[in-house]
Nucleic acid binder design. Structure first.
Length: 479
RNA sequence: CGGGGCGUGGCUCAGCCCGGCUAGAGCGCACGGUUCGGGUCCGUGAGGUCCGCGGUUCAAAUCCGCGCGCCCCGACCA
């Protein structure tokens, strides 16, 4: 079963990623163009992600529901910018039951339109508001170039759609969700992100305000890890979502939508992984600790397994997601590499020598090799492992923050900016004109990522044109 | 959609230029043994419409034509 090593990240980051996704057993290529099969290990990771988010959404008053996969084509025509944004990537069903359909049906690329249509039927009174619904499912966009998890034709996500009586309430909702996303990234995924507002050019099709959280990958490219949009009355007017206010006056609703997709798994891979493979943050890892029993013969096997089984039960009872690797047909060296590839945070090795001494070898995934390996007593192992897991969680976040901050620079001149975005992010004053943004994009391939919220009252000059600027923006090449 | 490359066991590829005998290798897979504290080793075995269609020829994985598919670069992309 000896397999070749992964390409290193330095050699070829893109290839490192491609191979890792498959070899870590997260996903496989599907027979359908641009689509992926999420394998059980990858789905278990996704379930841990969704479980946390679902809990947070419910805790803030949201409820789940399901809307149709197919959307009448005409729905897309109703919001001008929305149709322009999504028409090129729609997959369309033209036949059903062997006959040509009267109106073609689009496979949903996102559900603002059909949910907007339903909301117009459901909302009559100010008492019906706010309406806070989340849909968990998948959507389809005919992307030209795909990559597992990062940009697949079909991908998994949740999409929240809310309707409110006032603009303030809707904006508050947008920011509330953005905060949940931010907390998820820091606390669960150990990924530092910047919250901010998208430029007009980068805004969601049909939105008045688009906010995002942006993360830096190890190749220093930016990944939008989540978005939260405020639509104003755009969709409410397009779909006629109106209510009677307490003064018996007809008003349009203010709506929002927001999403985190399975792309976040790509971010976890690219932020934490190393040349040995995946490194999963303990709070999300499907398997937090792997036990590898080591023995030479049946007699040793009996004694070692006795201890290994006892340890397994102790860890499991302590609430640790633990697995025993009792495969007989591969060497322990192979097992070490195998579980490192899969990113399991903690490894417990137990052999005859350990049984004798009452110890185990405990290895931490974030520090491969001898440095991360120590011999600890079997007594109290569950507590030791729990402590180690939370230490790894913290250390991953600290490492990611240090890496990110070391690769963000503030350009003084446009020439500086060009150099910086070759291999990092630039944080710079920007006059907020589309011209300057387009110029940077064309000349450097870097786009504006977002304009961080709550900037102080500072004054400077646009790094591109030199005109006065009041806010700074991140420029980076993105996924 | 423009530029380049490639389609041969599950995977990576050799063979093709210069047509010929039973189509090969490594990895993976199955079985047996050996090993197991950092990707064991040995043996046996299963597994192939050589992308498709048509043509040339006594003979095509190999030459010619058409088609299809995939990958990379560019364009495009909440």
């Amino acid at each position: 079963m000896a397999e070749e090593k992964l390409p290193t990240r330095a050699e070829d980051f893109a290839e490192w990623y491609n191979q890792l996704v498959v070899r870590a057993d997260l996903a496989d290529y599907a027979p359908v163009r641009g689509c992926m099969v999420v394998k059980p290990y990858g789905w278990a990771l996704w379930e841990n992600i969704t479980a946390w988010l679902d809990r947070e959404f419910k805790a803030t008053g949201h409820v789940n529901a399901a809307f149709p996969l197919l959307i009448p084509m005409s729905f897309f025509e109703k919001e001008k910018e929305h149709v322009e944004g999504f028409a090129p990537e729609l997959a369309v069903v033209t036949h059903g039951g062997g006959e040509k359909l009267e109106e073609p049906l689009a496979v949903r690329p996102t559900s603002e339109t059909i949910i907007g249509y339903m909301y117009s039927k459901w909302v009559k009174s100010w008492r019906d508001l706010p309406l806070l619904i989340v849909q968990w499912g998948s959507v389809l966009r005919w992307e030209m170039r795909t990559k597992l998890f990062l940009r697949t034709a079909e991908f998994y996500w949740h999409e929240g759609h809310t309707a409110h009586a006032t603009a303030d309430e809707a904006k508050e909702e947008m920011y509330r969700i953005l905060d949940i996303y931010e907390r998820f990234c820091y606390e669960e995924a150990a990924i530092p992100v910047f919250k901010g507002t998208k430029s007009e050019a980068e805004r969601f099709a049909g939105a008045q305000i688009t906010t995002s959280i942006e993360a830096m990958m190890q190749d220093k490219r930016a990944l939008q890890a989540g978005t939260s949009h405020y639509f104003g009355q755009n969709f409410a007017r397009a779909f006629d979502i109106k209510y009677l206010d307490p003064h018996n006056t007809l008003q349009y609703c203010e709506t929002t939508s927001w999403a985190i997709s399975s792309r976040i798994i790509g971010a976890i891979i690219m932020v934490h992984g190393d040349d040995q493979g995946l490194i999963l943050p303990p709070r999300l890892a499907p398997i937090q600790a792997i036990i590898i029993p080591i023995y030479k013969n049946d007699a040793e096997k009996t004694t070692v397994m006795e201890s290994a089984n006892r340890i397994f039960k102790e860890l499991k009872d302590a609430g640790i997601r633990v697995k025993m690797d009792d495969r007989d047909n591969v060497s322990s060296g192979f097992k070490f590499n195998d579980w490192e590839m899969r990113g399991v945070p903690a490894r417990v090795e137990i052999g005859p020598r350990d049984v004798e001494k009452g110890t185990v070898a405990l290895a931490r995934r974030d520090r491969p090799g001898k440095e991360g390996k120590s011999f600890v007593p079997q007594a109290g192992l569950a507590a030791t492992v729990s402590r180690l897991l939370s230490e790894i969680q913290d250390s991953l976040l600290k490492r990611a923050i240090a890496f990110r901050d070391a690769n963000i620079h503030e350009p003084k001149t446009y020439e500086d900016l060009k150099k910086i975005v070759e291999d990092g992010w630039a944080f710079a004053y920007w006059c907020e004109s589309a011209e300057c943004e387009a110029k940077v994009k064309q000349e450097t391939k870097a786009t504006t990522r977002n304009i961080p919220l709550n900037q102080p009252d500072w004054e400077g000059t646009c790094v591109v044109c030199g005109k006065p600027a009041k806010r700074k923006v991140y420029f980076a090449r993105s996924y």
